[in-house]
Design a protein around this nucleic acid. Structure first.
Lengths: 119, 119
DNA sequence: CATCTAATCAACCGAACGGTTGACAAGCCC
DNA sequence: GGGCTTGTCAACCGTTCGGTTGATTAGATG
């Protein structure tokens, strides 16, 4: 099976599923309630929910024949952490580049590629 | 064509592409440099880069026959905003639920479903 | 000019995806 | 119990996806 981040990003790479997440952020809902706004079959929604469930974004609890779907917001932290990591790295890199360019400005020397080669 | 968020999430729903993003956060690289660590073909990496490019996560600049690939960190903001929106909504919902439960505790009345129906 | 290198384009392949329809399971309600 | 409601399971279908191989373009270099 794929790793968690792949499942989470994959789950949110679909507009319908993002829509469902948006709906669930307001409050829990049954499968039927979630399916109502769309003109695709209930089975298709059920599949979407299984993808969201597989990514840990959603949990289902069976009460009578109704399944209540609940959003698990904590999983978002996983994504946010991943994103912030590279956002931060990229920013640091820019700052290093800026510092370097500033330094170059002082002695007037021009180097086209500031980063070093690996290999 | 799909909307931007779909493209971004879709692009990051693949471990190899997330890996490439991680590599690019450290600094720009050529297609060949990006392909080196993997035992899949350069063509496959080229395809991955096209997906990342289509999502606006990456830009390519052609210098000689080498294409330098550059990470565009700003696109992450789009995702972060989307995520934070529902993270925040879900949290607010919990707080409302907590407040409600606390209130219920006081007069001892029990209501099973705190959110209202929309139909 | 000939050739080597770097990267893309194009066609193809199997697997996964998003959707459908049909059958079925599990509860409520008359 | 019989039937309605709610939801899932299973099989199928066309499209997309991640990968391959082969050919081709574009620039550096002998």
């Amino acid at each position: 099976m794929a790793d968690h981040l792949t499942l989470v990003f994959g789950a949110l790479a679909d507009p319908t599923r993002r829509d469902i997440v948006a709906r669930l952020a307001v409050g829990d809902a049954t499968v039927g309630e979630l399916a109502a706004p769309y003109d695709i079959s209930v089975q298709a929604i059920s599949k979407h929910l299984k993808v969201l469930e597989g990514a840990g974004l959603v949990t289902k609890t069976a009460a009578a024949q109704r399944r209540t779907v609940h959003l698990e917001a904590e999983v978002f932290d996983l994504m946010t952490k991943w994103i912030e990591k590279y956002q931060q790295q990229a920013e640091e890199r820019y700052q290093r580049l800026d510092a370097l360019l500033e330094q170059l400005d002082q002695d007037g020397n021009v180097i086209p590629q500031p980063q070093e080669k690996s290999s």
